[in-house]
Amino acid sequence: RKEMTAACTPRRRIINLTSVLSLQEEINEQGHEVLREMLHNHSFVGCVNPQWALAQHQTKLYLLNTTKLSEELFYQILIYDFANFGVLRLSEPAPLFDLAMLALDSPESGWTEEDGPKEGLAEYIVEFLKKKAEMLADYFSLEIDEEGNLIGLPLLIDNYVPPLEGLPIFILRLATEVNWDEEKECFESLSKECAMFYSIRKQYISEESTLSGQQSEVPGSIPNSWKWTVEHIVYKALRSHILPPKHFTEDGNILQLANLPDLYKVFERC
């Protein structure tokens, strides 16, 4: 597991931080080997919608929660590849102030007048994250320049770009939802926020969305749709870069829909 690298990086740093090793061990302890084997050997059937997909393993048909699986995938990559990410360069710098204002204007932020003026909160978020810029760049390849612009994001899987519609809320939550006081809790909560931002979430995906850094293989055609990215990038990574937690067998994120021999018997009677 320590050699797990989802995106190509030129050289690998050895990380011996106790906090990170502890988080890696927790993933191992909570892992479910049968689910790992199923995901490793599954045959992708198709997307139901951005949140759900169908896959077959041996004779069984499964309904998989793409949102939760991708979130767990990105969390584990962030923990196992800690401080070893490439950088996704933004085509132009994104001012943190503008991103924070967009987030505060969104109902998702939960902002009320009692929280104070949005401009003041946005300025605080910019200054707060600028103070964390060195650590964010060093460990997470999340790059913020001296003017308070976001200029780079971590490359977690080759050819995958997170849904940038979720970027404003991500920046807001970096400042408000991460435990910045304790090292282990900081790395864990920061990785979880980043994983949620990178995950496939239906509120940020339309039929026209593209999450891939590449064009489709047909010359002159439109960019790959999110469905292509889910199948050929995300579920491909799920084959080798995730140890599913045991609770996925109990919380409805992986559901067995049918045993195909039983279905064949039904059709034979028709």
Score class of each variant (00 low, 15 high):
45 V>K: 07
130 K>Y: 09
51 Q>A: 09
163 P>K: 08
35 L>T: 13
129 L>I: 09
48 V>A: 08
261 P>G: 14
171 I>K: 01
226 W>M: 02
7 A>Q: 05
153 L>N: 02
156 L>F: 01
139 Y>F: 08
82 F>L: 05
68 K>F: 08
223 P>F: 11
230 V>G: 01
40 H>T: 14
114 E>S: 09
177 E>G: 06
169 I>A: 12
140 F>Q: 01
167 L>T: 03
92 E>M: 08
237 A>V: 05
117 P>V: 07
47 C>V: 14
57 H>S: 13
186 C>P: 03
197 F>W: 02
105 D>W: 03
43 S>F: 12
54 L>M: 13
214 Q>P: 10
185 E>D: 13
160 Y>A: 00
64 L>D: 00
222 I>E: 14
130 K>N: 14
206 S>M: 09
165 E>T: 12
173 R>F: 01
247 H>S: 13
146 E>L: 14
160 Y>D: 01
20 V>W: 03
39 L>M: 07
206 S>I: 08
217 E>K: 11
166 G>M: 02
203 Q>N: 14
47 C>R: 03
40 H>C: 14
170 F>R: 02
104 L>V: 07
5 T>G: 05
182 E>T: 10
156 L>Q: 00
186 C>G: 02
143 E>N: 08
169 I>M: 13
66 T>C: 00
201 R>G: 04
127 E>G: 09
246 K>C: 12
50 P>Q: 10
121 L>C: 08
144 I>Y: 01
225 S>L: 08
246 K>D: 11
32 H>P: 01
58 Q>G: 09
61 L>S: 04
43 S>Q: 13
128 F>N: 06
261 P>T: 09
210 T>W: 07
113 E>N: 08
96 L>S: 03
16 N>K: 10
93 P>G: 06
34 V>M: 10
253 N>V: 15
203 Q>I: 12
224 N>P: 15
20 V>P: 03
231 E>K: 04
213 G>V: 14
259 N>D: 14
163 P>M: 11
107 P>K: 09
23 L>F: 04
174 L>E: 00
22 S>Q: 10
204 Y>A: 04
18 T>C: 06
118 K>T: 05
224 N>T: 15
255 L>C: 11
8 C>Y: 10
256 Q>Y: 10
218 V>F: 15
140 F>G: 01
28 N>K: 12
214 Q>R: 06
232 H>M: 05
136 L>V: 05
144 I>M: 11
94 A>Y: 15
127 E>I: 11
46 G>Y: 08
6 A>E: 06
113 E>C: 15
192 K>T: 07
103 A>M: 01
8 C>H: 07
206 S>H: 09
161 V>L: 10
226 W>N: 00
226 W>E: 00
205 I>Q: 04
186 C>K: 04
233 I>H: 06
68 K>W: 03
154 P>D: 01
223 P>A: 15
156 L>S: 00
232 H>S: 05
232 H>W: 04
27 I>F: 03
17 L>H: 05
15 I>Q: 05
135 M>K: 04
75 Y>F: 10
142 L>C: 08
210 T>M: 07
249 T>A: 14
21 L>Q: 11
98 D>F: 05
65 N>F: 01
184 K>E: 07
123 E>S: 08
254 I>Y: 03
77 I>G: 01
92 E>Q: 11
251 D>M: 05
49 N>E: 08
270 C>L: 10
170 F>W: 03
61 L>E: 02
63 L>I: 06
169 I>C: 10
116 G>Q: 08
101 M>H: 07
171 I>V: 15
86 G>V: 05
66 T>L: 02
140 F>N: 01
266 V>F: 09
254 I>A: 04
20 V>A: 05
76 Q>Y: 00
47 C>E: 02
233 I>C: 14
54 L>E: 03
46 G>D: 13
99 L>Q: 13
69 L>C: 03
269 R>E: 15
176 T>R: 14
217 E>M: 13
156 L>N: 00
232 H>Y: 07
63 L>H: 00
217 E>Y: 10
193 E>H: 06
213 G>M: 14
252 G>S: 15
165 E>L: 07
85 F>N: 04
105 D>L: 14
264 Y>M: 13
62 Y>G: 01
47 C>F: 11
234 V>G: 00
165 E>Q: 09
170 F>Y: 04
71 E>G: 04
245 P>V: 02
125 I>P: 01
250 E>G: 07
260 L>V: 14
28 N>P: 04
52 W>N: 02
95 P>F: 08
79 I>D: 01
261 P>M: 06
211 L>W: 14
37 E>K: 11
107 P>R: 11
106 S>N: 13
225 S>Y: 11
96 L>N: 01
160 Y>P: 02
252 G>Q: 07
75 Y>E: 02
88 L>R: 14
116 G>N: 06
107 P>E: 14
79 I>W: 01
196 M>D: 04
216 S>T: 09
90 L>G: 00
11 R>C: 07
115 D>W: 08
143 E>C: 05
23 L>R: 02
91 S>L: 12
16 N>S: 07
26 E>F: 05
7 A>W: 05
190 L>A: 05
167 L>H: 01
104 L>K: 00
97 F>Q: 08
221 S>D: 15
12 R>I: 15
204 Y>L: 07
174 L>M: 12
120 G>D: 09
16 N>R: 09
55 A>S: 12
48 V>Q: 02
117 P>C: 09
144 I>C: 03
143 E>M: 06
17 L>V: 05
244 P>F: 01
147 E>C: 13
